[in-house]
């Protein structure tokens, strides 16, 4: 009986120890440790529009290389790559991308495809921006003389979309620093969260078409301005410079880039449609 008593405590301890060990083992065991993969820093628009879910399986099937996508704003994605935490960057802000390459962090920039931005706003369009001129549309939002003033939601996160928005304001001759008021809502968030905010406030917002088409919680919003050539949104892809970061998987990364630019890759991009609508238009110059 006494033997049983003390061995009970012992059993307890052993059991606990075994649980700990097992859990540690499970935790330390990396997912598919020997998997061949590259890490791609990209934007929320490519991820959330569903393009990658369509594109990557085709590439992975063909190459045997898994692509791990970290989706951030363009600015963050480039910073991540600067620190060497990605092998390939796939973003949409030409000026920032060229700077990235000029600084030596990227090997070479290739244009892959474009989609377009759309100006979205309340169905009843209180500022009367609907049409095909993005600059005129923004001017009307900035100068709307109605009460309550219809709000405009900005990403405010240094993303490609945010940078494009800032360029449009400038081109429209609106000095944001001066014109900014309670109507201009700087949300500092990704495309999706910004759209959620806009839907909740019934606000105007600049969005990429892909994310918008894939977005479910639209509320009372609709596309008001589209088709302006200035709204075209170019995507570029770059291999992170192995000279800066020796661990970069340059061969597999380059394979991914080559595939994106290849006829097969370009056709796969064309084939991605939501409700019959093509989202991205390949334009690689090879």
């Amino acid at each position: 009986m006494m033997t049983k008593a003390s061995s009970l405590t012992q059993t307890w301890r052993r059991l606990l120890g075994a649980c700990c060990l097992a859990l540690c083992a499970v935790g330390a065991w990396p997912a598919q440790a020997d998997e061949r993969f590259i890490t791609v820093a990209s934007t929320t628009s490519t991820e959330q529009s569903g393009l990658f879910a369509h594109l990557l399986p085709v590439f992975e099937q063909a190459s045997g290389i898994k692509v791990r996508v970290v989706a951030l704003g363009t600015g963050q994605a480039l910073d991540l790559a600067r620190r060497g935490d990605a092998d390939v960057v796939f973003v949409h802000d030409k000026a920032a991308e060229e700077k990235f390459v000029a600084e030596g962090f990227g090997v070479q920039r290739f244009e892959v495809m474009y989609n377009d931005f759309v100006l979205i706003g309340p169905r009843n369009d209180p500022a009367q921006v609907a049409g095909h001129d993005i600059l005129e549309g923004l001017r009307r939002i900035a100068s709307a003389d109605i009460s309550p003033r219809p709000p405009f939601v900005s990403r405010g996160d240094r993303s490609g979309t945010h940078m494009a928005e800032l360029r449009y304001w400038k081109a429209a001759g609106v000095d944001l620093d001066q014109a900014k008021g309670a109507w201009y809502r700087d949300t500092g968030s990704g495309m999706g969260p910004a759209l959620n905010t806009a839907a909740a406030m019934n606000a105007y917002i600049l969005a990429d078409r892909g994310t918008w088409l894939n977005f479910r919680n639209r509320g009372d919003l609709r596309i008001l301005v589209e088709g302006d050539t200035r709204l075209f949104n170019q995507y570029g892809v770059m291999l992170v410079n192995p000279a800066k970061h020796p661990h970069v998987k340059k061969d597999d990364g380059q394979k991914f880039i080559d595939w994106l630019l290849s006829p097969v890759g370009q056709q796969t991009i064309t084939a991605y449609k939501i409700n019959g609508e093509q989202l991205f238009f390949p334009n690689a110059r090879r």
């Binding site: 929320t44 959330q48 879910a53 970290v70 495309m191 999706g192 969260p193 959620n196 479910r216």
Partner: peptide
Amino acid sequence: GGNIDGVTRVMTTTIALETSKGDL
């Protein structure tokens, strides 16, 4: 984790992602 599909995507990051996509 980077919320990488199939590698580091957990429940909370999926919730954040689906909220982003407006799939409430």
